[in-house]
Design a protein around this nucleic acid. Structure first.
Length: 473
RNA sequence: GUCCCCAUCGUCUAGUGGCCUAGGACGCCGGCCUCUCACGCCGGUAACACGGGUUCGACUCCCGUUGGGGACGCCA
């Protein structure tokens, strides 16, 4: 069968960072395309020369790379296509589908204000539509001649049938008075030129679709299919945007989230597959289909993201986590950053204990610093009782005498102290933990000692005894 | 205001006329495990917005109301 191969695009405007909502759009687009063996493209929509910056392009690219959503071909920049857009407009002008408009912004504002007062939808009133103006020295824009009657309808792959009466639409501007092309023109031309067969984007673009379809019709082009996905909302239920609580996806990396976890979480917003909650990227690429999306907006829930992130941390192999842990330790000021061998040895002990890589770094930091004093006050008060002084001193001796520094060897020494003083595990483990780690929580006490090494164990035991002698109870 | 869209536990969702005294997940609460903290396991909490229809039977279909969101730029 001659099924047209799927071509999609993610089309961000480089006016800022890539936020979590944009990342979700890119993810859905990418997953759907991979599932159907299509081609996923990236188009930078920089027709707004005022606000677009090369820095933003770089940040968006980096965000996509980090998430593993790299496009299949080199990105396309709308700013490279200006001549093409303008040529299309000339065709439109020649065919009578566009016209010159000399209305001033002041007039437009006044018209809109009047319409609002009457309770109408603000839109261009068609003042220049039939004036047959020709380009002159006077400042002018070029507008599209939108049909007055009839309607535009399309079968949206997510929303179902959507229909707009043409009478609801106005004559949009195609070319600004400075001669630059506008968004709707550029999108329509590029979607056609790039051979896009399915436009996947946020539902905030629904109202642009009829305009773009009209442009396609006027040019006699084949109209692509559309899939408008529900938006991501913030905790207050409003659209997530840069000025509304959204932060860069790269900040999630800083906060210790794994890209697989972010993707997993985002995919479950609006989409599900039975009762499965945890998905790998490979699974998503096999299962995700935009046509299975729900139609209602979802609210971003950090608590669930944390849970999923913890799950992916546990599921990861240590070497996958190594670079992230090193990165986070560096941010905590650990210097020098431990070797990968060192980190690989201790990392498994912390996988089940951290929801983020930041948390993991915080929890294993004690291993790599010189002193854990001052102790966490509450922990010290509760566990470093005077009665523990002697047992800890015995332990110091036992530790010094350990011949082979491995789990069994250390455990033997520890048990000996327990027996000698008639203590149970917890009675000795907790004070020791405080002395060794500075806090009342850590991996198993023997594991902790083994990880720390004999030298540091002895040093900290000595420091602990000194602290107790100092009477700082 | 006008147009478009949406509506199941606090949140993400399953549900496509009877299998629903509405299932799962996160969170929260309780318990187990236990040297601490986690992980894990067990149990609990909590929802079909409202009103009309259609039907032998509605969470599921239709209409209305209410509520929410989006769009109304020489931004994208």
């Amino acid at each position: 069968m001659a099924i047209m191969t799927l071509r999609t695009r993610f089309a961000p405007s480089p006016t800022g960072f890539l936020h979590i909502g944009g990342a979700r759009t890119a993810l859905f687009c990418c997953l759907h395309t991979r599932r159907h063996q299509g081609t996923f493209l990236l188009r930078i929509e920089d027709t707004d020369t005022e606000r677009s910056t090369p820095e933003a392009v770089e940040v968006i690219l980096e965000g996509l790379r980090w998430l593993g959503l790299a496009p299949d071909e080199a990105p396309s920049f709308q700013s490279d296509h200006t001549a093409r857009y303008l040529a299309v407009v000339q065709e439109l002008l020649a065919a009578g589908h566009a016209y010159i408009c000399t209305c001033s912004r002041e007039r437009l504002d006044a018209v809109r204000e009047r319409q609002r007062e009457v309770g109408d939808k603000p839109r261009y009133d068609g003042h220049c539509r039939n004036r047959n103006l020709t380009p002159g020295p006077e400042s002018h824009v070029i507008r599209f001649r939108t049909p007055h009657t009839g309607e535009v309808e399309w079968e949206d792959q997510i929303q179902g049938k959507i229909c707009f009466a043409n009478s609801e639409l106005d004559d949009l501007i195609l070319v600004r008075s400075d001669g630059s092309p506008t968004y709707n023109l550029a999108v329509a031309v590029d979607d056609h030129d790039m051979g896009i067969t399915l436009v996947i984007r946020g539902e905030d673009h629904i109202s642009n679709t009829p305009r773009q379809i009209h442009l396609f019709r006027a040019m006699g082009w084949e109209i692509p299919a559309y899939a408008h996905m529900p938006l991501l909302h913030g905790a207050d239920g409003a659209k997530l945007s840069k000025r509304h609580g959204a932060v860069s996806v790269l900040q999630y990396r800083e906060e210790g989230f794994l890209p697989t976890a972010i993707n997993n979480y985002l995919a479950r917003l609006g989409w599900s597959h039975g009762e499965q909650e945890i998905f790998t990227m490979v699974e998503l690429e096999q299962l995700f289909d935009v046509r299975q999306l729900g139609r209602s907006a979802a609210i971003f829930d950090r608590a669930k993201l944390l849970w999923i992130n913890g799950h992916h941390i546990r599921a990861a192999t240590p070497d996958q986590l190594l670079p992230e842990l090193a990165f986070q330790l560096g941010r905590l000021g650990v210097d020098p950053i431990p070797s990968v061998e060192q980190l690989a040895r201790i990392l498994p002990e912390f996988q089940a204990r951290a929801a983020t890589m930041v948390e993991m770094a915080q929890k294993c930091r004690f291993l790599f610093i010189d002193s854990v004093q001052p102790y966490e006050e509450k922990a010290a008060r509760k566990h470093l009782l005077p009665s523990m002084r002697v047992p800890l001193e015995t332990l110091l001796q036992a530790v010094t005498a350990v011949t082979e520094w491995h789990f069994e060897g250390v455990e033997r020494a520890f048990q000996k102290v327990l027996t000698a003083h008639g203590l149970n595990m917890g009675q000795l483990a907790q004070p020791l933990r405080v002395v060794l780690t500075g806090s009342a929580a850590s991996p198993g006490i023997i594991e902790t000692m083994v990880m720390l090494g004999r030298e540091k164990c002895c040093q900290r035991l000595q420091a602990g005894l000194a602290w107790m002698d100092g009477g700082c109870g």
